[in-house]
């Protein structure tokens, strides 16, 4: 059974901003599913629709067996949500935030307090529980948001960019916390624009670009679609594209040769076995190699292939668009 099903979701904001353009995906119960895409791809809009905050212009979706448009109350009973802004009250203590969340879900008394205590413990907030949330560090605030979203034991948890804006160290801690949520039958929908995050946490993921899913599968499946490994050679003195291509022409198994300044990119079915041949051919042609790396395909490569641009390029484009919009 699917915990989340989204079918052909579309939404356009005033000013002709097309946030979603026929987005579909399904999430199996009890798994961590990642929606990966650059800023502005439509990830947050998807979360807002699935959590009954926003209405789609077209398409349908169900969460935990309830239609988001026909039975929003059923959806709300079943979900926990951590939005990008977080959602905690800074002027209240961590414990008060969690207590109010439980009360809204009709929990009370000793049961509620026990649940709060165990979550505080799980998220290492026991000592800070009775301090105002405004005094928490960024990582603590994010942990409080997740703990709060879990008070009422939701079946589906939405995490919208849970590590954006955190230091790399804190981000790694958050990954451990989120990884620990797996199991217990909880379904997690995670949105992120960090390739590494999707790779680490999500069992299944959908790559989103311009309001559509452009690729779907497990991170390994998606990477396997790309043939072979990437070989990167740093050239000591640079070389012309044609010279390199000629030099590597006779090396078996090498494809997609490309030179960018002093960097040579190529793909090979089996990178490690191919490297000696590549180096020998370059040497024979008088091209000096300074360094060589062989890499398994990354989600960045997957994104490049499906969206037709590199991830960082897409981010830069949306940033420029955002700036123009705010002007």
């Amino acid at each position: 059974m699917y915990a989340i099903e989204a079918a052909s979701l579309a939404k356009t904001y005033p000013g002709d901003v097309r946030a979603l353009d026929g987005l579909s995906f399904s999430v199996e119960q009890g798994t961590v599913f990642g929606l990966l895409g650059p800023n502005g791809a439509g990830k947050s809009t998807t979360v807002k629709i699935l959590t009954t905050l926003a209405h789609p212009d077209a398409g349908s979706a169900s969460v935990a067996g309830h239609d988001v448009l026909a039975e929003p109350a059923g959806v709300r009973e079943a979900i926990g949500v951590v939005s990008q802004q977080g959602g905690h009250d800074r002027e209240a203590t961590g414990r008060e935030n969690m207590r109010l969340q439980g009360q809204v879900y009709d929990m009370s008394g000793a049961d509620l307090e026990r649940r709060i205590d165990s979550l505080l413990e799980q998220f290492h907030l026991t000592e800070a529980a009775d301090r105002l949330a405004r005094e928490y560090s960024g990582g603590m605030q994010r942990r409080l948001d997740i703990a709060t979203a879990l008070v009422h034991k939701p079946r589906v948890l939405f995490l919208d960019e849970p590590t954006t804006g955190l230091d790399p160290e804190v981000r790694a801690e958050m990954w451990e916390e989120i990884a620990r949520l797996r199991g217990e039958g909880l379904t997690v929908l995670l949105t992120t624009h960090y390739l590494e995050e999707a790779d680490r946490l999500a069992a299944q993921l959908a790559i989103v670009d311009k309001g559509k899913v452009v690729a779907e599968g497990s991170p390994d499946e998606l990477k396997r679609e790309l043939r072979g490994d990437a070989i990167h050679v740093e050239l000591a003195n640079g070389a012309a594209d044609g010279d390199v291509a000629t030099a590597l022409d006779g090396v078996p198994g090498v494809t997609e040769v490309m030179v960018e300044d002093r960097a040579l990119h190529a793909r090979a079915d089996d990178g490690a076995r191919t490297v000696p041949g590549v180096l020998a051919a370059l040497e024979a042609a008088g091209i000096e190699a300074a360094a060589v790396t062989v890499a398994r395909p990354s989600l960045d490569d997957v994104y490049l292939r499906h969206a037709g641009r590199t991830f960082s390029e897409a981010e830069a484009q949306t940033d420029t668009a955002d700036q123009e919009e705010s002007r």
């Binding site: 009954t52 905050l53 109350a73 709300r76 009973e77 959602g87 969340q101 809204v104």
Partner: peptide, 16 residues
Amino acid sequence: EDLDRGVIDRFLVSPV
């Protein structure tokens, strides 16, 4: 302030 910090949104997606 509640809107900016996502507090209202958190309540709107709850049964409150």
